[in-house]
Amino acid sequence: MNITTIFDQFHANIRRNRWAGYFTVFLRIALAYAFIFAGFVKVNGERFTSLSNNHPMGHYLEALFHTGYYYTFIGILQMLAGILLLIPRTALLGALIYFPIILNICILSLAVRFDGSILTSPLMVMANLYLICWDYHRWKFILPFKRSTIRQMLPDSNSNSREFPFKFFGGIFLSLAVTVSIIILVNLKALMPRNHISDCQAQCPESSDAVACNHFCECIHEEGGSLNQCLEKYGRTVQK
């Protein structure tokens, strides 16, 4: 039995389970709500946050706001992805449109250490990947693997199992715990720009060099320096 057959059987077993189905519906609604709301703000021509333009994320969002119809285009795609997720027949298409957008948001949040989505965006990426895998039977045939059948239909809904899949959900929660732990550990001692200068300076008393930390916060929020520039200045100050 090859790995594709094993995964096919695992996928079929999960699709039979009602609890996994309920969880999938919950994820679709949650992700759809997030993007429909965020997309509507853009389509309506409003700024997405009240972050200072000097904040690293504020730099990006302000520039994005001034891109004209590109800003609106992103909002339309977000709303479209969210609406498609809510419709069972189009949920896979919605997940596929959703993925590159949320992956970009995730990488951006990690790159600029943005408090607002540094934790939620990786979890949304994982949820999005789950939804894509949920419809694995619909796109698996584009993969370069040899298969004995052209199409394998899912079992009838009347044969769905009501048994709670403890191992399946245990694996999901373990993945979430590992992801959250890694994010927390990576950023635990990292100097964060925070959303406002007061929040940024609040971490300084715990810093090895409070003066350098305060200079870092001023560099971000008052001078409008980039994250890398301000971190380099912080490093040079600490070394003196």
Rank of each mutant, 00 (worst) to 15 (best):
E232N: 12
P155C: 05
L77P: 00
Q239K: 15
L231Q: 09
C200D: 01
I97C: 08
P56I: 12
R194Q: 12
R47I: 10
L64E: 03
N228T: 15
L61D: 03
H137G: 01
C200Y: 02
I105K: 00
D8A: 10
G82I: 01
D156E: 13
I6C: 02
C204K: 07
F99W: 11
G116P: 06
H196F: 13
M1N: 08
A30I: 09
N17Y: 08
A91F: 10
I150T: 10
W19P: 00
R16P: 07
L85K: 13
S181P: 02
I197M: 05
R113T: 13
L108S: 14
N187M: 07
F168G: 00
R28H: 07
N13Y: 11
L31Y: 09
D135H: 10
I220S: 04
L31K: 10
L64A: 14
T179K: 01
A91S: 15
S181Y: 10
F40Q: 11
T5L: 11
G94N: 03
V41Y: 12
Y22E: 04
L191A: 02
G21C: 01
Y71R: 01
Q78D: 05
D115R: 05
Q78N: 04
Q229H: 11
S161R: 08
H11V: 09
R89D: 05
W139C: 01
S161W: 06
R194H: 11
A202R: 14
E163G: 09
R147N: 06
R15G: 02
R138G: 01
R28S: 07
F7Q: 08
A34T: 11
F216N: 12
E62V: 10
H196K: 13
I87P: 01
H215K: 11
C219G: 15
Y60K: 08
C200K: 00
G235M: 08
G45N: 04
I107K: 09
M79P: 01
L174V: 13
H221D: 02
Q203A: 12
I3R: 13
Y60C: 06
Y22P: 01
M153K: 08
V211S: 12
A95R: 06
F114W: 10
F164M: 02
M192R: 15
V180G: 02
L51N: 04
I87Q: 00
C204V: 04
I184C: 07
T237L: 14
I101G: 03
R113M: 14
S117C: 01
S226R: 10
V180A: 09
